[in-house]
Design a protein around this nucleic acid. Structure first.
Lengths: 252, 252
DNA sequence: CGCGACCTTGAGTAGGCTCAATGCCGGTGG
DNA sequence: CCACCGGCATTGAGCCTACTCAAGGTCGCG
């Protein structure tokens, strides 16, 4: 864990978790909620820009994002960075640390965040006592694999403008889904064009020019690290394919 | 499922599964083995070139690869193809079908294969009765996510020759790991340069030229859809980074 | 006011793409 | 037995997408 973090002990009891009100999350039984509450050992607040995980280190914790946004990434020895995906409220983080000792990727907060903290060993108790929740964990893992598949398809086979369009749609949908916006088209994420570039496997300059074209055509608007989709249809045309529909999912 | 397949009913009892002798797979308890045996409903043989899953369809089955190699891929509407990864003996296939109704990717056999067949509903019983195996399933999902991360890093941020070198090393290691070769450097996979290209997000022509350079420098040898690593060190230099070490894993 | 973070733009380059043709081999049918 | 065909590898030529290098511009903040 990194610098600017602050432990807050238990705060919101899971039963009252505001995220659970969203229709995108499947309802939990009272019993499941009670268990998750014991599984959760506290909350932590992290400032924008600080690291939640660092490649090559170990972490005893798992997290669920309560609020805020972060991104997962890997670095090459010479500093080239590839952003793997973005983590939104409700996302479960750190499972991959159970495979290898050391984390194989890093995670950095894009905005200020609040995270629920779980102990990695607690996961074992979860599997032993709660088949449903165990399946949920597996389900979440499979889902993030699917999102990686899409991302890989983009980076490998789409043109720069297709990639940009597709990513913006994808981000807009995911943000809207967890209620971080009212219009589904205006997105307020403190994201820079450098992030976009590193997500799409493009250079900063080329990303800027590609976005510039979308801006000039009044398909999107870009201001101060946030963007707005002006013409969803046209953006979808650029993307060539609509992003996949979202699915009701568990929330740990 | 596709054309050239053949059901064989139960054949090898899991207790005698030849794969389990490999040190790369964690030992199962007799009880676990007994359960997996009931979970397994049969075997299926598929011919090289036929499809195990097709994007957009549903499948009631899960598979473990017993022998042979296949690859997972996605297509764009206009036919561009991105290969996501390769599936080797011991790999568990189809879990992603539990997230969405329809498969989000296709899988095609590269060589003739034999697969263990499980019913997707049986998975639920596994989670209810076997915490250890449930965790194994999750573990496998997290592992394949890790491999996707690496692949995404390659495609997004490495140069063509780095990508080629890295992929060849990766494939060689994975094949060696499951005992499909004796030398760890001579790989016999019926893979074409088109596959390599679609894996790395490159064009066929450029892939050919890039491999050509490796061949001319006597780093690798390429014959008739199979290749051999002549100079592992030099190939690793090209790759810039050695592929991650392999880990003992479960085998369902 | 100066600085840092980010966005923008120009100019020149190159890595990778497309189109096109050729060669090689193994299989198939006449 | 041979001609033909299809799948795969190879090579040349020309182009273009995307990259690098380099400046500026804007804005917020100490």
């Amino acid at each position: 864990m990194a610098d600017k973090t602050e432990l807050r002990g238990r705060q919101v009891p899971c039963q009252l978790c505001p995220l659970r009100k969203l229709k995108i999350f499947r309802p939990f039984t009272p019993e499941e909620l009670a268990f998750v509450s014991t599984f959760k050992t506290g909350e932590v607040t992290v400032k924008a820009g600080s690291s939640l995980f660092l490649e090559g280190t170990t972490s005893a914790h798992l997290y669920t994002v309560l609020s805020g946004i972060s991104f997962r990434y890997k670095l090459l020895p010479d500093g080239r960075r590839q952003i793997l995906n973005y983590c939104m409220p409700g996302d479960f983080l750190g499972l991959q640390g159970s495979v290898m000792q050391e984390m194989q990727h890093s995670v950095e907060a894009l905005s200020d965040m609040v995270l629920c903290v779980f102990q990695r060993e607690g996961l074992w108790r979860l599997f032993e006592t709660h088949a449903g929740l165990s399946f949920d964990v597996t389900w979440l893992a499979a889902r993030s694999e699917q999102m990686l598949d899409q991302q890989l398809l983009s980076v490998g086979r789409r043109s720069a403008s297709e990639r940009c369009a597709y990513l913006l749609l994808h981000l807009a949908d995911r943000v809207a889904e967890v209620g971080l916006t009212r219009s589904r088209n205006t997105i307020r994420i403190p994201i820079t064009q450098q992030h976009i570039a590193d997500t799409l496997g493009l250079s900063l300059v080329h990303t800027n020019r590609t976005l510039g074209r979308l801006i000039r055509d009044r398909v999107i608007r870009w201001r101060e690290q946030e963007f707005e989709i002006l013409d969803r249809g046209q953006l979808a045309d650029f993307a060539g394919e609509e992003a996949t529909a979202n699915v009701v999912r568990p929330l740990l």
